[in-house]
Design a protein around this nucleic acid. Structure first.
Length: 457
RNA sequence: GAGGUCGUAGCUCAGCUGGUUAGAGCGCCUGAUUGUGGUUCAGGAGGCCAUGGGUUCGAAUCCCAUCUUCCUCACCA
């Protein structure tokens, strides 16, 4: 049998995982610094928890898990009837569980189920894989990691500001400097819709104007028309979504353009307040840009929406998020507003690989390899390795007796920076021959001084 | 979900309009060097040509299907 991998999934080698860990660690460090605590949720959820949360498109992209048992036994015998069955009606009989599609909805479920044990505002981070039955492409996988940070139980816009700060800091630490952090507010989009007299057509308008970067103003006009937006509405919409300027110019313009919309005005105030809070934190973030055409597909966002793009690489967004006022309400707990951000690790990885941003030093797990010639020197070496490990040095010993050449080749292939050689002479003198694999320099070192030697070099 | 595209050694790829035994570079293994890697030299191994069918005297090459890769649309991290 020939081994294969399901479409859109990948194996990861140690070298790749080392690099991915670097991303995890960087993000985790920032999350912790902003006082988010970790949680995990199960790989699978009850299907009912997930369906209806991501729009119709999202429902199709959820990986469903087949029920156990011989559920098709009856229909199997009457195949023709089975073909006439509506698959949507059949679904409950063959599937009631599904793989996580993102981390936000399971988190909302978690909050509702654990409401008595957590104190609000609750800040959590979560780093786990998610699955989407999408068609794979570059930067698009069926199994990938998300790193989420959310705070629920407060509608303070300070949280939005902190999210922007976290995005900024994570990207700085990863070395992805040339980015754009786009921010918008669903309430502004509602306001625009209201002004245009197309209330209720919000989804159509949002998905159309979201594409303005790609298809241009003419394309958007065409798409709006095809989606049944009247010409009068379009005429009102276009100058608004096509307005260009810096953040304060956009806010100034919107204030007059949306002055007759209560909700729109509220959205503008919110964005302004977020910018003000960021200012108060004393951080200047030039990458932050208000973008009125940013809509984002997920249906649960109600306030701020974020998206991060790396400008040096052709790639979809590497991070996205926003405020959702009533996600927990779907599970029976009202009045818990939340806001969060999600980093797409795979895309960040691909970008860093392309831009050569991974630090060079981090490519080996062990610091030193102990080599030997026979059983006696191997035994002698095991004690040395144990000592190094108890001093928190990642050390390994070649696990079988073989030619010294082979052991050196192993160290070289794994980029282990130091090799200690132990033979008869060394055992007699309580020393090791310690070689720096980078410089080629080799010294006789007392076996109790290895630690000092390593720290010196 | 709609359309297109790719698949030959571990990797990157050559292989002509079907015609002997499918090649190269790099990597890998062995030796030169029985206590020293990364350089050099000599030698060697490694292929169900993605998978399954079909056309043909003959298929890596042509046809069909499946799987996979990448791309555009849609959607997203």
């Amino acid at each position: 049998m020939k081994p294969t991998l399901p479409r859109g999934t990948r194996d990861f080698t140690p070298a790749q995982l080392l690099k991915r860990d670097f991303i995890f660690d960087t993000i985790k460090k920032v999350f912790k610094k902003f006082a988010f605590a970790p949680i995990e949720t199960p790989t699978m959820e009850n299907l009912s928890v997930l369906t209806g949360k991501y729009g119709e498109e999202g429902d199709q992209l959820i990986f469903k898990i087949l029920n156990s048992g011989d559920f098709l036994l009856e229909p199997k015998n009457k195949n023709i009837e089975l073909q006439q069955v509506d698959s949507k009606k059949l679904l409950p009989f063959i599937s009631e569980k599904a793989l996580r599609y993102d981390l936000t909805v399971p988190f909302a479920r978690f909050v509702v189920m654990n409401r008595n044990d957590i104190s609000f505002p609750f800040k959590r981070y979560q780093i786990q894989p998610v699955w989407r039955a999408d068609r794979p492409q570059k930067g698009r996988y069926r199994e990938f990691y998300q790193c989420d940070a959310d705070v629920v139980g407060t509608d303070s816009l300070l949280c939005e500001a902190e999210i922007v700060l976290m995005i900024h800091e994570v990207m700085q630490h990863l070395g992805i400097k040339n980015i754009e952090i786009k921010i918008n507010n669903r309430k502004i989009l509602s306001g625009i819709t209201e002004i245009a007299g197309s209330f209720g057509k919000e989804t159509d308008i949002c998905t159309a104007i979201d594409k303005i970067d790609k298809i241009g103003i003419e394309g958007v006009t065409k798409e709006l028309f095809e989606r049944g937006i009247s010409q009068t509405s379009i005429n009102i919409l276009l100058p608004i979504i096509n307005f260009k300027g810096n953040n304060s110019e956009i806010l100034y313009f919107l204030k007059s353009a949306l002055q007759n919309s209560t909700i729109g005005t509220k959205g503008i105030d919110e964005v302004e307040q977020v910018l003000h809070f960021i200012d108060q934190f004393g951080t200047q973030i030039d990458a932050l840009k208000i973008d009125i055409s940013l809509a984002r597909g997920l249906s649960y966002y109600t306030g701020a929406i974020f998206e991060v793009k790396a400008l040096d690489v052709q790639m979809g967004s590497i991070s996205g998020g926003g405020r959702y006022d009533n996600l927990t309400g779907l599970f029976g707990l009202d009045g818990v507003s939340g806001v969060g951000i999600s980093f797409g690790v795979e895309r960040i990885y691909d970008i860093m690989e392309e831009l050569n941003l991974f630090p060079q030093t981090d490519n080996s797990y062990s610091k030193i390899l102990l080599t030997h010639f026979d059983v006696a020197s191997m035994n002698y070496g095991m004690k040395i390795v144990a000592n190094l490990r108890s001093s928190n040095i990642a050390a390994e010993i070649y696990p079988q007796v073989t030619k010294i050449k082979k052991q050196f080749e192993y160290a070289n292939a794994k980029s282990i920076p130091f090799v200690a050689v132990v033979g008869e002479t060394e055992m007699q003198n309580n020393t090791v021959a310690l070689k720096n694999m980078l410089s080629g320099e080799q010294n006789i070192v007392d076996k109790d001084n290895i630690l000092e030697y390593l720290q010196l070099k």
